[in-house]
Design a protein around this nucleic acid. Structure first.
Lengths: 256, 256
DNA sequence: GCAATAGTGTCTCTTAGACATTATGTG
DNA sequence: CACATAATGTCTAAGAGACACTATTGC
């Protein structure tokens, strides 16, 4: 041990250093399209993700995740937030880090370690952007379609990992609220969960979520100023009770 | 868009690049020490983590997480695996990535983005190493004590985040097995969970884990060659049934 | 026979899960 | 009055949660 080591004897340049630390963002949204027919009905929902067509080498012309290099003056999280704002024009959305990708030679430009985030964006924020699309260089793709495409870099793997992660979080946290309006019907909530997790099925869903003691408090009925239950008949003839999330985040356990 | 961009016109050196991408590892273990007294009893267990005393600038003389810079020829995960082997001499342990730390100026040596892992090491693997300690430059600290110390860099924050993460995973996955022998008693399992999650309490633990249908299959009774239940009286006069994990990883949901 | 852990009996109230049924109101 | 969604009724079997109780055996 050389206790005389200090700032003046430290040589930072001894080793090879990375050529960049970008943030890449898997931006998810759920689109809803009205079903054909005159009767009121729930819309068709689909999980989509936003891709951009690369303009430069490498992978020019191929679809890729939005992202960009982080700077010395910001965290990678701030970088992702900045890129998200540039790509979608939205600031206040759920943005979460989930993994690092550092396989050697994953990027032909050099030693580039990518930090992957996912964002959950309500479709209402993306509507303005849609109109401003510059010749389809930015587009939403249904998740299944995106996974069947040949994406730039290792972005297919990143998308797959992100999808696995949000499927897990959809069932264990309240991220469903990111895809819903502040007030929603049980039917909408159920549909959003199923859109992300196709295997989810719960015949007595409404009872579990509203009257089971262990889950009580997760969502609550919305009432108007007079204390009367607020209803909506947007999707059905019979009006449905509106609910909102309470902010409670349940702790799960396999042992109890 | 300049479609003529290609490898020959790409200039990697235009921007400032990071000065390093290390992996830091929060190595957890649970020590068990025999209680005083002649009667057979469960040991006292304590969650500990391994720290090293820094020899060089910066933070020379202060305790820090083990770790080291990753190389261009390896992933950060491989780097962490390598460092773990160097520090503890063990290879086959649970090692998991959990976060990135990139706050500007977090490291006085420059722009250094750290990748944080946690490792769960059974104390039996650390026993050899303990003897080989070179003048207490490597030591186990009880988690509470480590969190009250002034650690190098932002390592206190990293430890806190790691602790929160393993507490969550202790209750939602079967990582408890990392701290247990292949065959264990219900009492041991219960104690390991409580050592990591002090708030965990489950009066009817044995019944839930062995006879509740929804949890059946998580662990199973160990039987000998003749099909007789294998028991252990290591901790008690009355022999206890030995169990092992089955490999099943339950999927939890707040909606069902 | 005490200490320390292992494990069972028993009781009440709640929940799970399955299915059938009723409610609503517009086209 | 058909349709699509919303919500309730009803039943059985299973589980939660509490607490008292028995079991084992080295010391």
């Amino acid at each position: 041990m050389d206790s005389q080591d200090n700032e003046t004897t430290y040589h930072a340049g001894k080793y090879r250093t990375p050529d960049g630390a970008p943030a890449d963002i898997v931006i998810f949204t759920i689109t809803s399209t009205e079903k054909q027919g005159t009767k009121k009905s729930l819309p068709h929902r689909e999980l989509q993700l936003l891709l951009i067509k690369r303009k430069q080498w490498p992978f020019a012309g191929q679809w890729a995740l939005p992202g960009g290099f982080s700077r010395e003056t910001e965290t990678v999280h701030e970088c992702a937030r900045r890129e998200l704002l540039e790509e979608t024009g939205v600031a206040d959305v759920h943005l979460e880090y989930f993994n690092v990708y550092s396989t050697p030679k994953r990027d032909p430009r050099g030693w580039i370690i990518s930090h992957a985030f996912f964002a959950l964006v309500n479709e209402k924020y993306l509507e303005k952007r849609r109109a401003a699309d510059d010749a389809a260089e930015v587009r939403l793709f249904p998740v299944r379609e995106a996974l069947s495409m040949e994406l730039a870099f290792d972005h297919r793997q990143i998308v797959q990992d992100a999808l696995r992660r949000i499927r897990e979080k959809m069932l264990t946290t309240t991220i469903a609220k990111q895809f819903l309006p502040g007030q929603f019907t049980i039917g909408e909530l159920y549909q959003v969960i199923q859109t992300v997790c196709p295997d989810f099925e719960e015949p007595n869903f409404i009872r579990k979520i509203t009257s089971t003691q262990s889950r009580k408090g997760l969502i609550e009925e919305v009432k108007d100023a007079a204390g009367q239950p607020l209803m909506s008949n947007k999707y059905s003839q019979r009006a449905a009770q509106l609910y909102c999330f309470t902010g409670l985040e349940p702790q799960l356990s396999i042992y109890s």
